[in-house]
């Protein structure tokens, strides 16, 4: 008899209905998480978040391009003359002292993607120039001329030894 009373109490039935809907909805939402998550980078992609580079083989005045997270990174072993020139220049439309853009002045490490529309700039006599819309960067990766709004980006990196850097980990 008491069971019947419960059933006929609409409030109780209503509460259970709401609770069931909430629990079911929460479960359905949780079940979507693996689907969403599966579209994020997989662990093998994430594990390429850092790249080790042996820089001992780059002699003075030379540059090397390596891939970090699929993006080109320029590593330049700058000469004393180049370092001096860069220290004297304030940069272009996005002024920044050269000292803030390097860890060791002889090594410049920058992401080789033009800040305008994402093309890869080419080496030029004075730095880099972008083949797409003619943006010009100096040997500190600072924008001098052209449509690009900002200097070339600096990846996080650190020196493991004097001859080895790890990019992707500051």
């Amino acid at each position: 008899m008491s069971d019947d009373d419960k059933v006929k109490d609409p409030q109780r039935r209503d509460f259970l209905g709401k609770a069931t809907a909430v629990v079911g909805g929460a479960g359905a939402a949780a079940a979507c998480w693996p689907l969403v998550s599966s579209m994020n980078p997989a662990t093998d992609v994430l594990s390429k978040a850092t790249t080790e580079v042996d820089i001992g083989s780059i002699s003075k005045g030379e540059a090397k391009t390596i891939a970090w997270q699929g993006k080109p990174v320029f590593i330049v072993h700058r000469t004393e003359d180049q370092i001096r020139a860069m220290n004297e220049s304030p940069g272009g439309k996005d002024p920044q002292p050269d000292g803030q853009r390097v860890i060791k002045p002889e090594w410049l490490v920058i992401v080789g993607i033009c800040t305008h529309l994402g093309c890869v700039p080419n080496r030029s006599a004075t730095g880099w120039s972008c083949p797409c819309h003619g943006s010009q960067y100096d040997l500190s990766g600072r924008i001098l001329k052209g449509p690009a709004p900002r200097n070339l980006e600096l990846p996080p990196y650190q020196f493991v030894t004097d001859n080895k850097i790890i990019i992707g980990k500051a």
Binding site: L35, S38, N40, A42, T43, V45
Partner: peptide, 13 residues
């Protein structure tokens, strides 16, 4: 095997 080991929840899918 990539799905089973590297993709997030790939084993579950």
């Amino acid at each position: 095997e990539h799905i089973m080991r590297e993709v997030n929840y790939g084993w579950l899918l």
